[in-house]
């Protein structure tokens, strides 16, 4: 029978959070991490555990966590290995679900009741995308509380089903940064899992300006999007998709006067050559449902 929380106890859903581990990717944004942890504990110790996957920050992030939040587990990757920090935190989590956050994002705890209800009702999705926003206005109740099918998410605010992490694995570490969610979604869908979303449950992404370089965005987005096409695009669509993407690589190389896209192309080929791909491809329907934005890599430079 579907579980609903008692209207007499509006905070009942908070008990579900004891089944949720929180995994935070952190790199040199100490004050942002502090804000995220403060927000997570503002209603008390609600979570199964909180884990910080730290990419060897040098700004005192780990010391800050040890001093101010001794209950938080910090895992050091030993270097800046991008999403490996997330992977470490996801795979060491013990909760049934893992709430993934960036060091500059935090959940609006008051908005989590619908996803908690979905968890209590035995949701079998691989991941539930939360609504990642700049701010949240409590008076607004217009968003649907329904947890519905979706085809993508952001690591800054998503609940992973730990069973799915065990079966599918975490992010592909060679991606380093960006589009890792796209690749993971493709892996999940092609292995028969579903991804869900709940617009009502909100994560605030404060989008700290530190560590956001346009060059890195352009490089990793371009390289990883090409890898996505090579690895997951349906065979029938591949000639057309690759033609368009390679055309854009040349087009934006000329328009932006930068070699970054050609370098990304060379790296993607190298990675693909080094690791023959055995995973199943997406069906045409799944690919269209995901609808990857193949122009996104070219919107960071100019």
């Amino acid at each position: 029978m579907a579980r609903s929380f008692s209207p007499q106890n509006p905070d009942e859903y908070l008990q579900t959070l004891k089944r949720v581990s929180v995994a935070i990717l952190s790199y040199n944004r100490c004050s942002e991490l502090e804000e995220t942890l403060t927000q997570l504990y503002k209603k008390g110790d609600l979570w199964c555990e909180v884990i910080v996957g730290d990419n060897a920050s040098t700004d005192g992030s780990r010391a800050m966590v040890r001093e101010q939040f001794p209950q938080v587990k910090v895992l050091n990757t030993g270097g800046n290995h991008g999403i490996v920090g997330s992977n470490l935190a996801y795979t060491s989590a013990v909760g049934d679900w893992v709430l993934s956050l960036d060091d500059d994002s935090h959940p609006v705890i008051e908005s989590l009741a619908p996803v908690c209800r979905a968890i209590e009702n035995g949701c079998v999705a691989a991941a539930i995308a939360l609504s990642v926003r700049k701010k949240w206005i409590p008076a607004e109740k217009s968003e649907s509380e329904v947890v519905k099918p979706a085809f993508g998410f952001s690591s800054a605010g998503v609940l992973f089903n730990r069973k799915a992490i065990r079966e599918i694995g975490a992010y592909d570490p060679e991606l380093f940064l960006f589009t890792n969610e796209l690749h993971w979604t493709a892996r999940a869908l092609s292995k028969g899992w579903e991804v869900a979303a709940c617009d009502h449950s909100v994560v605030i992404h404060r989008s700290a300006p530190a560590n956001r370089s346009s060059w890195r965005h352009a490089h990793f987005y371009c390289r990883n999007t090409l890898l996505f096409l090579l690895r997951y695009a349906p065979k029938r669509l591949l000639p057309k998709l690759l033609t368009g993407f390679l055309r854009d690589i040349w087009l934006f190389t000329l328009l932006h006067g930068s070699g970054v896209y050609l370098k990304a192309l060379a790296e993607a080929r190298k990675l693909q050559k080094a690791k023959p791909w055995q995973e199943p491809r997406l069906s045409i329907e799944q690919f269209h449902a995901i609808k990857p934005d193949l122009r996104a890599p070219f919107s960071y430079l100019g």
Partner: peptide, 13 residues
């Protein structure tokens, strides 16, 4: 550039 893209795509495939 679509022509160049098509040649590149065929090579990759």
């Amino acid at each position: 550039l679509t022509v160049i893209g098509a040649i590149g795509a065929r090579r990759l495939i």
